[in-house]
Structures are given as C-alpha cells and as structure tokens.
Design a protein around this nucleic acid. Structure first.
Lengths: 212, 212
DNA sequence: TTCATAAGTGACTATATAGTCGCTATCGAC
DNA sequence: GTCGATAGCGACTATATAGTCACTTATGAA
C-alpha cells in the first residue's frame, strides 16, 4: 500500500491504489458491521452499503463473507502476535514473562476493542464447529504457537507438546475470558484497577500448572 | 407437567400431555441445535427436524425463534438462580459467600454445559445490541439481582445501586469468562485442579473492589 | 486521441428460510 | 359412535440474501 506495490516494490498506478483503497474500505466496514451486529447477522449488502460501494464490487475483492472474515482475523491475529512477541531479550523469569504477556493482551484489547470482539466471535465459531471453522482455525493456531514460543525457554526440556498446547490454551482462554467481563461491567479505570490482583492470580495459577 | 396442570392442579388429559411433550421435544432440540451450530445458524426447520416434528407444529408452540430462545434462557437462568441461592442462612463472611458463589457456578456449568453455551451466546447478543436484546435481557437482569441479593448483607448500607450493579456484573463476567477457557483447553480434572488459585484471586479481587 | 484492461456497478436469478393455512389425526365429552 | 375442539402437519407464499453478469467508468500505454 501507500503507493508502492508490496511484492514488486515498484510504484503502483492509480488503478491499483484505487483498488487497494476499496479493499480497505470493505475491510473497515466489515469489521464495524461484524462487531456491531455479529458476523452471522452481517449480510454482504449491509457491508457494501456501509463501505459505500456497489454490491458487485465486494466479489471483486473477496470470494465470500468467509474469506473476508478470514482476512480480518488474520490481520487481527498478526497484530496481536507482533504485540506479544518480545523483540528484545528481556531478562526475568517465567513469572515476569507471564505478567508481560498478560499486560500486552490487555493493552491490545483496550486499544483495539473491535479486534477483540472479532477474535472472540471467531473463537466461538471454532468451538461451535461451524462451517467457517477450517479456514479461520489456522491463525488461532499460529497465535497459540506464538504464545508457546514465548514460554519455550522456561519449559522443561521433555515436556509433551500436548501439555504445552494445554498451557497456551489456558493462557489464551483466561486472558480473553477475563477481558470479556471487563468490557461489559467496568470502566477503563476500573479495569486497570482490578487488573493487578487478577494478573497475580493468573500468574500463580499458570506457574502452579507448570510445576506439575 | 407430569400429568398435572401447573395452574389448575387438575389432572391433564392425554391431549395436553401430548402437547406438553411436543413442546419439550422442541425445547430440547432447539437447545441442542443452538449449542451445536449457534443460535443464528439454527433455522426453524433444523430444529423441527431434530425434534422430529412438522414445521407447522413449531408455530403452535412458539411465535418465532426469539421466543423459543427466550424460553430456553429463562429456564436456564431460573435453574442457575436456584442453584446460587443460599437456602440455609449459612454462616461465614463475604469471602466465604463469594467462594460458594464461584463453586456453585462452576458446578452448574460442569453439569449443564449446554445451558452455559446458551447463556454465553445470549450474553453476546446483548453486547452486540441485536434485535433479540430487549426480550432476553430481563432474565439476565434477574440473575444479576439474585447475585446482588446474595451479597446484600455484606455491602455497606449507603452503597450506590450503580456500584452494586458493577460488582455483580464483574462477578458474573469473571465466572463466565473463566469457564469459557476451561471448556476449550482443559479436561475436567484440570479444571478442578486449576480452580483453587483462580477462585482465590477472584475472591481477593472482589473483596478489594468492595473495600474502596 | 485511441483502445485494451481493470475496477466498479446494480439489476437479476437462484436459493434458503420465515411464517401461513387448509387439511388430517387425535382427543374427550356426550 | 358422534362431533366439536385441539394438536400436528407439510405444501405453499413471501421475503431476504448470496452470488452473477452485462454494462459503465477509470486508467494508462501507445
């Protein structure tokens, strides 16, 4: 984007830029509609209307609602993955790493509540075994793998992959679950205030989980 | 049911019992379909097919999917309310009461996972501000009020209703949120094992919330 | 300026589903 | 057994939505 083709690094023409802009408008509109009335209730026409483009245009950019949803989830997970990845080799033990992980999730969700709602819904779909499942499961798995990479150095050498996966599922679930209540009942200040004890519990719980 | 009319306490005829049975079949089928593919993806025909009943029969018992969903939610909330209501005047302070509240929720969800998934979805709808909202909001409010009644004796006299509502929202959200992760990543044994530290954190967090 | 190509459009078709209605089966009072 | 009333039924209609396509508009190379 930004006037330069991602793949070739050659300057893009106006046509390509226009197409990119339209695609973006569709993604933005879809994210809004998905998080306002839910993915299921969102029809293609509601999305194109919101994006202020013709219905046919939608199908020039996406095969169907599924692939649009997938693109959005991919993007959100990618953002989240970047956020929770420690670029610097920060010092500290397992507890410190977990605390950082927790904080980075909360900050991300506070900054991008729509992405949170979207990922939350997507997770529900996987749980419900909907037809969308196959396609959207991959980014969630990548996310779990990112979590596992973050913890890798702290885990005992011979730990079974199943156990590790259980641990990362638990972390993801806890963080998402905690935040789901924060978004309904609490103000931003209250979220931050009630954060500390919950985070402590989270870290203690996970450390105990690992100790077994 | 059970052969006796709820309102008159007169014995019901075969016709009424048949109708009651059909209604029950519809409710059971709907609960199954709702929790397997989601409320939105559940069509009337999928439900009647599952219930092994003609489509027209559905409309003799329910006005539409909404009212069926509402009946199911009412029933689930009612069950949950009964469960979390202390019948005996159990001794102990605020912490003890909170611990019991937490345990009773978890036990209920473990015993009735479908009701959990249903209530979880319903809560999502309210959050998404869907057209179903108005009708299904009432039982959730009753549930919050039940929670508040459970805590009433421990709260300071002049506490603002808004504050109290915030507290009950936080409790509900936390318990539902915690369990959402438990259902995906953990076995039943692991849920029970990881329960204790989480419960402690929950109680500490709420007590601190109240202290302010 | 010309023209081939790509992007955008909305009327149109096909399909899925909600909700209706006239019919049949069952019930129970007599 | 008769018959009015209630429950059950599924073909039917109306509607919403997915997805298509012939057309218009914008782009940019020659």
């Amino acid at each position: 984007m930004n006037g330069v083709d991602k793949n070739t690094l050659w300057p893009m023409g106006r046509a390509q830029r226009r197409a990119g802009k339209t695609r973006m408008k569709l993604l933005d509109a879809a994210l809004a509609v998905f998080t306002e009335i839910g993915v299921d209730a969102a029809s293609i026409e509601k999305i194109t209307e919101r994006a202020d483009v013709g219905k046919g245009t939608f199908y020039r950019h996406f095969a169907d609602k599924r692939s649009l949803l997938q693109a959005l989830i991919e993007e959100a997970i990618e953002k989240l993955n970047v956020r929770i990845t420690d670029d610097a080799e920060t010092p500290g033990g397992f507890e410190t790493r977990l605390e950082r992980l927790f904080d980075e999730h909360v900050n991300f969700f506070l900054q991008y509540p729509r992405q949170y709602i979207l990922l939350f819904q997507g997770r529900m779909f996987i749980k419900l075994g909907r037809d969308l499942t196959g396609e959207i499961e991959a980014p969630y798995l990548r996310y779990l793998e990112t979590l596992e990479r973050q913890m890798a150095t702290f885990l005992p050498d011979g730990m079974q992959p199943t156990k590790i996966r259980g641990l990362s599922c638990a972390i993801a679930g806890f963080v998402f679950g905690f935040f789901s209540f924060a978004m309904i009942g609490l103000t931003k200040e209250e979220i931050e205030e009630s954060l500390r004890p919950v985070r402590k519990a989270f870290v203690d719980s996970m450390a105990k989980f690992l100790a077994r």
